Simulated assay, not measured.
Amino acid sequence: MSADASLPEPPAEPHVADEQIQLVDARNRPCGSAPRAAMRRFRFWHRATYVVVRNRRGELCVQRRTLTKEVFPGGLDLAAGGVVGAGEAVHVAARRELAEELGIRGVPLRHLGGFVHDAGGNHIFGSLFLVDHDGPLTLQVEEVAEAFWLSPHQALVLEGVTPDTRQAVEALLAGGELEAGR
């Protein structure tokens, strides 16, 4: 028997569909949790984060979703982010998603409010964040196929932009948050 045979097996990673998601009611009040698969199937209200990444030229980081993504496979995201886990604060979820998807860590996030996305069977209370970043990106191969930079207006006219991230960027534009120098 080798020395390695006596070591315990590391715990298995939870399957994404089993991940517990924070559920909320139609007023954004926590009301329990459910596995991600049930949240999608029953179209429960939930929270999600949207972190718009901007470089010093005012361009946004546009990410192409992998073809294996459950929702909008191959689509274009104008923000990093995702659903908020059960009991997780939105700012913690935003930092986690930004680090996972784009490898961006240790940068200040500006929380710029939120929006409601209630379309296409999705019932989301979105929390909006903005981060300025000119450093390298490390893409999460399971979720992000490629990333590139475009002005907000160029990004919004692309075919295949996910409707929730489109709404997030439109909200930031309407609030003047993506103007040069801000």
Score class of each variant (00 low, 15 high):
1 M>D: 11
2 S>T: 03
3 A>K: 04
4 D>K: 05
5 A>L: 15
9 E>C: 10
12 A>Q: 13
18 D>T: 06
18 D>G: 02
20 Q>T: 04
21 I>C: 00
22 Q>I: 07
23 L>W: 00
27 R>C: 07
29 R>N: 15
36 R>E: 12
36 R>K: 14
37 A>W: 09
37 A>R: 05
39 M>Q: 04
46 H>R: 14
46 H>C: 10
49 T>Y: 03
54 R>S: 08
60 L>A: 01
65 R>L: 15
66 T>Y: 12
72 F>D: 07
73 P>V: 12
75 G>M: 05
75 G>S: 13
79 A>P: 02
85 G>W: 11
98 L>I: 07
102 L>V: 06
104 I>E: 01
105 R>T: 15
106 G>H: 10
106 G>K: 10
106 G>T: 11
106 G>V: 13
108 P>V: 03
109 L>A: 01
110 R>C: 07
110 R>T: 12
114 G>H: 01
116 V>A: 08
117 H>Y: 15
124 I>L: 15
124 I>P: 03
125 F>P: 03
127 S>R: 00
128 L>Y: 01
135 G>F: 08
137 L>M: 00
142 E>R: 12
144 V>W: 04
144 V>E: 03
146 E>F: 05
148 F>P: 03
153 H>W: 13
155 A>M: 11
155 A>K: 08
155 A>N: 13
156 L>Y: 07
165 T>K: 11
166 R>P: 03
168 A>R: 05
176 G>D: 00
177 E>C: 06
179 E>G: 02
180 A>R: 15
181 G>R: 10
